[in-house]
Simulated assay, not measured.
Amino acid sequence: MTSPRDDAPLTERLQRRLLRAVGNSRLLRRWGPRILPRVDLKVFRWSHGRWMPSRLLRPIAVLHTTRRDGTPCHTPLLVARDPSGSFLVMATNFGLPRHPAWSHHLLRDPYAALTWRGQTLRVRARLLTPEELRAARDHILAAMPVFDDYAARSGRNVRVFVLTPLSGSADASSAATSGRR
């Protein structure tokens, strides 16, 4: 598969190739879903929301949703920032056959919070239509070079959401960050 932007600088092409190789490694497929989110969240809490190890490779944000029983759920996610200020998040779940829990949470309740670069924003999620997904494909592959590989391995239609910040959400309340409404 060729990259979505063959005219990209050499360092970007090498980085995408490296991310694709790491993302498809047996080690990451086996241990990534179990270890990476936990490590990212621990370091995120220890650094008071300033840093996560996964940010060394790609832009990562923490999505704050609410489970059916009302308890908060905090999930580190790779994000692609849209020029309009929205965020694209891909529910690849490391290529596993099940949709990740956070995507079910967003389908049930589209209002959530997103911590991005130390700032918590209230957002509204919307599942992309197949046409929108095709239109955003280059943007998705630029952010997540392993998207097609994970989608093929999972054997399901990978959900992609656009998270649109709500007006006046720059200083979200503590209720949004704790998952309460």
Rank of each mutant, 00 (worst) to 15 (best):
M1G: 14
T2Y: 10
T2Q: 15
P4L: 15
R5L: 13
D7S: 10
D7N: 15
P9D: 15
E12V: 11
R13L: 13
L14S: 02
R17Y: 12
L18R: 11
R20T: 06
R20A: 14
A21H: 14
V22L: 15
N24W: 09
N24I: 11
R26L: 05
R29I: 03
P33G: 13
L36R: 06
P37R: 06
R38M: 06
D40F: 13
D40W: 05
V43A: 12
V43R: 01
F44T: 02
S47H: 04
H48Q: 15
G49Q: 01
R50N: 08
W51I: 12
M52G: 09
L56Y: 15
R58L: 15
I60D: 00
I60P: 00
T65Y: 09
R67I: 02
R67T: 08
R68P: 07
D69P: 03
C73F: 14
H74N: 11
T75A: 05
L77C: 02
V79S: 05
D82W: 03
D82Y: 02
S86G: 08
M90W: 01
P97L: 12
P100G: 06
A101H: 10
W102D: 07
H104Q: 08
H104Y: 09
H105D: 10
L107D: 14
L107H: 13
R117Y: 04
R117M: 03
G118L: 05
Q119T: 04
T120A: 04
R122H: 13
V123W: 00
V123P: 01
R124E: 10
R126Y: 08
L128C: 05
E131S: 07
L133E: 12
R134S: 14
A136I: 12
D138F: 10
I140E: 05
I140T: 02
A142T: 09
P145C: 09
P145M: 08
F147A: 05
D149T: 06
A152F: 13
R153T: 09
S154N: 04
V160T: 00
F161A: 00
F161V: 02
L163P: 00
L163T: 00
L163M: 01
L163F: 01
T164V: 10
T164H: 06
L166F: 10
G168D: 13
A172K: 05
S173P: 04
A175I: 07
R180P: 00
R180G: 01
